[in-house]
Nucleic acid binder design. Structure first.
Length: 196
DNA sequence: AACAGTCTCAACCGCCGTAAG
DNA sequence: CCTTACGGCGGTTGAGACTGT
């Protein structure tokens, strides 16, 4: 279409790849006039050569009026870390506690910023264990967690809980709504992630 | 200035749960 | 009860942007 890259699909009726401004406008227009419905028929009715899933994703992650884009605040960051430590990678649950943020955004943020930072930190601590700095009691981080434990956090125990089977490990699923306790199992502070 | 490596994020894929027929 | 269609979710990918050498 109009000189854009060819995202060939099995079905020539269905477009893939980045959304164009035109498509965005069509979807926004349709959504404001009709509201959400069955996504597949919505895509057809709106004249979009996209799958219903694609439309849904685009709307929820990008076009929704209440979607908030831009920097994650330190408060949001702490909340993400805390909720992730409690619930694992249940991004949609976590997103519900961050108004305007999408699960996709949080997921990306976690992987690119927080997780990387944690891995880096745990590597440093492991190095310290192997080659201890002369005077340091470099056995633990500032909350008394061993390097191995920290790694476990970094790689997220993320128990699949109710949908998975992790060798008998059971974890309480996310409560409907629970005020996060910043000291409950999480030792990370904003300063730990300061480079961000 | 040019190239290589790294990072970011939008979008896709595949699986699962649920509702409708 | 079984099958099918759909929505929702988490994981992964790839293109473009950015940074370092």
């Amino acid at each position: 279409m109009d000189g854009k890259p060819c995202y060939c699909t099995q079905d020539p009726e269905v477009r893939k790849g980045p959304w164009t401004l035109e498509e965005d406008l069509i979807l926004i227009d349709y959504m404001t006039n009709h509201g959400e419905g069955v996504w597949n028929s919505l895509a057809k009715a709106a004249g979009l050569q996209r799958t219903g899933k694609s439309c849904r994703l685009r709307w929820l992650n990008y076009l929704r009026p209440d979607v908030r884009r831009g920097n994650i605040t330190p408060e949001e960051q702490l909340l993400i870390i805390h909720l992730q430590s409690m619930w694992g990678n249940r991004w949609s649950e976590i997103a519900k506690h961050l108004p305007g943020r999408t699960d996709n955004e949080i997921k990306n943020y976690w992987r690119t910023k927080i997780q990387k930072q944690m891995i880096k930190q745990s590597e440093t601590e492991i190095n310290d264990l192997i080659n201890p700095p002369s005077s340091a009691s470099a056995s633990a981080n500032h909350c008394g967690v061993s390097a191995a434990d920290t790694t476990a956090i970094a790689y997220s125990p993320a128990p699949p809980s109710d949908r998975g089977d992790l060798g008998g490990i059971t974890v309480t699923p996310p409560p409907p709504s629970q005020a996060p306790n910043p000291n409950d199992g999480v030792c990370w502070g904003v300063e730990d992630l300061s480079p961000m």
